[in-house]
């Protein structure tokens, strides 16, 4: 079993036009920078991207948006990106906005083999339009369906060659649940180590979920709003 690939280009080589991708990260924190760059270079198009945010104009998913490689976004918060807003308002880009917790749970459920579930979030709002409503514990809930992807592309801090992953601080965010929900999960990591070097007690995402792994290079780790005391 060899999960290790050379680099991002090799990891994403078989992504096809029109496929559905999950991309980890919250804002610009914990995004798979190397794979995004490789997909810009590969010029793969008509993508459906599931990602909490859409990057900024010149970084993160903004790079794929700028080249019109994304057909549809499923997200929860898409501010801070003018090109995104322009494409959405002009109808070039299809956008499905989800409450953030619903989005995270749809992804987790997809990886966990739960096809649908009821949540209170969004009841009475436009999110609930067309969805089944049921009352539990005296409160209305709406039916939400799981999400899966052809490829989940995630970023972790440390990984071993068996695909076991550890995330760092708040760079975990959507990476862990997305790692469960890809038919093929690609993990890029700051540090790739030999099997046996990571403490099994500390693993966030077990290697069973990860099909490809590589140590990334040249991380910019851009900060969106640097705020200091």
């Amino acid at each position: 079993m060899n999960k290790v690939v050379k680099n991002a280009a090799e990891a994403i080589a078989d992504i096809q036009n029109g496929q559905t991708l999950m991309l980890g990260g919250f804002g610009l924190s914990g995004i798979p920078e190397n794979c995004i760059t490789a997909m810009v270079e590969k010029e793969v198009t008509d993508l459906t991207c599931i990602s909490n945010n859409a990057g900024v104009d010149d970084f993160g998913l903004g790079l794929l948006l700028k080249k019109h490689q994304i057909k549809k976004m499923i997200s929860s918060y898409v501010g801070e990106n003018k090109e995104f807003e322009r494409q959405m308002l002009s109808g070039e880009l299809e956008v499905e906005l989800n409450p953030q917790g619903t989005l995270a749970e749809r992804i987790r459920a997809g990886g966990a083999g739960i096809p649908a579930f009821f949540v209170p979030a969004g009841y009475g709002t436009e999110v609930a339009e067309g969805k089944e409503v049921r009352e539990y514990n005296g409160k209305p809930h709406i039916l939400e369906e799981a999400l899966v992807a052809d490829f989940s592309i995630i970023k972790a801090w440390k990984g071993d060659k068996a695909g076991n992953l550890i995330f760092r601080h708040t760079a975990n965010n959507f990476n862990q649940p997305m790692g469960m929900a890809g038919k093929i999960t690609i993990a890029e990591v700051d540090e790739l180590v030999e099997v046996g070097e990571l403490d099994p007690n500390q693993i966030h995402l077990p290697g069973v979920f990860v099909q490809r792994i590589f140590q990334g290079v040249d991380y910019e780790k851009r900060i969106e709003f640097e705020t200091t005391r």
Binding site: R168, I223, F225, T228
Partner: peptide, 21 residues
Amino acid sequence: GPFPEKGKADADLINAGKQTV
């Protein structure tokens, strides 16, 4: 915790408003 001291901001450590914390 509070916002970081100048020069101590960490891209892996942000709040929901994407500010460094």
